[in-house]
C-alpha cells in the first residue's frame, strides 16, 4: 500500500467511500409491538427479537453495498457477518439514542428507559449500551462517522474462519482510509479523532458479546419466539 497523500475526495470535499456508505444505510424499521399482548418481559423480548430479525435481513443487503465487501468470497462474507452482526445492531441503537438522555431508541416506536429495561430483564445490557451512547455523545458522533465505523466493525470482526486474510485486510484498510480522509477534511482541529473513534470498538465488542450471551440464555429458556435468521446467527456465535 502506498503512503497516504491527499485525501481521496470529490470537489465538494466528500470521501467517495463515505458517500457510498451513507447511501447504503438501511431504511428505518418499526418495532410494532403487538397491541393484543399485555405488557410483559416476554412481550418486550419478543418485540426486540422480531425487530432484530428484520434488521438483520436489511443489514445483509447493507453489507453487500459496502464498497469491496462483495468482492470477498462468500465464505468470508458469511464469517464477517456471523461475528459482527450484534455489533452492527448495537451500534445503530447507540447512534439513534444519541439525542435521548438515559433511554435507548431501538426503533422510533420502541424507546426503552431503565425501568422498562429492568422489567424485561435487560438492565445490564441497557447500562452497557448507554455507556457506549455516552462515549459517542461526548464526541458528537456524526452520521458519516457512524456509517464508516459500522462498516469497520464488520470488516474488523476478528472471525477465526477467514479464508482470504489479505482480502479482508484490504477491506479494513480502505474503510480505515475513508475514515482518516473524512476526519482530515472535517475535523482538522482534532488529529486524534480517528483514533478516538476506533478506540470505542472494544466497548462495542464487549457489549455485543454480553448481548449475545443474554439472548442465548433467553433462547435456551424457550419462552420467547425467535425467527430463523436471528436464531441462526445466535447459534453462529456460540
Amino acid at each position: 500500500q502506498p503512503h497516504r497523500k491527499q485525501p481521496s475526495c470529490s470537489a465538494q470535499g466528500e470521501n467517495k467511500v463515505v458517500t457510498l456508505l451513507l447511501g447504503a444505510e438501511p431504511e428505518k424499521v418499526c418495532a410494532m409491538p403487538d397491541p393484543a399482548l399485555p405488557d410483559s418481559d416476554i412481550k418486550a423480548l419478543t418485540t426486540l427479537c422480531d425487530l432484530a430479525d428484520r434488521e438483520l435481513v436489511l443489514n445483509i443487503s447493507w453489507a453487500k453495498n459496502i464498497p469491496g465487501f462483495s468482492s470477498l468470497c462468500l465464505s468470508d462474507q458469511m464469517s464477517l457477518l456471523q461475528s459482527a452482526w450484534m455489533e452492527i445492531l448495537i451500534l445503530r441503537v447507540a447512534f439513534c439514542s444519541l439525542p435521548c438522555e438515559d433511554r435507548l431508541v431501538f426503533a422510533d416506536d420502541y424507546i426503552m428507559d431503565a425501568e422498562q429495561a429492568k422489567s424485561a430483564g435487560l438492565l445490564e445490557l441497557h447500562k452497557a449500551i448507554l455507556q457506549l451512547v455516552r462515549r459517542y455523545r461526548s464526541m458528537r458522533l456524526e452520521r458519516e462517522e457512524f456509517v464508516t465505523l459500522k462498516a469497520i466493525a464488520l470488516a474488523n470482526s476478528d472471525s477465526m474462519h477467514i479464508e482470504d486474510v489479505e482480502a479482508v485486510q484490504g477491506l479494513q484498510d480502505s474503510l480505515h482510509e475513508a475514515l482518516l480522509d473524512y476526519e482530515c477534511v472535517h475535523h482538522r482541529e482534532d488529529p486524534r479523532r480517528t483514533g478516538k473513534l476506533i478506540m470505542t470498538l472494544p466497548l462495542l465488542r464487549q457489549t455485543s458479546a454480553k448481548a449475545v450471551r443474554h439472548f442465548c440464555s433467553i433462547k435456551q429458556d424457550g419462552r420467547v419466539p425467535m425467527h430463523k435468521l436471528f436464531l441462526e446467527l445466535l447459534e453462529a456465535n456460540v
Binding site: 467517495k16 457510498l20 443487503s61 462483495s70 462474507q77 458469511m78 456471523q82 441462526e232
Partner: peptide, 20 residues
Amino acid sequence: KEKHKILHRLLQNSSSPVDL
C-alpha cells in the same frame, strides 16, 4: 456452512453490490 443456509441464501440473493 449447511447450518447457516438463510444467511448464505440472503447473501447470494441480495442486490446491488458496489465495488470500487
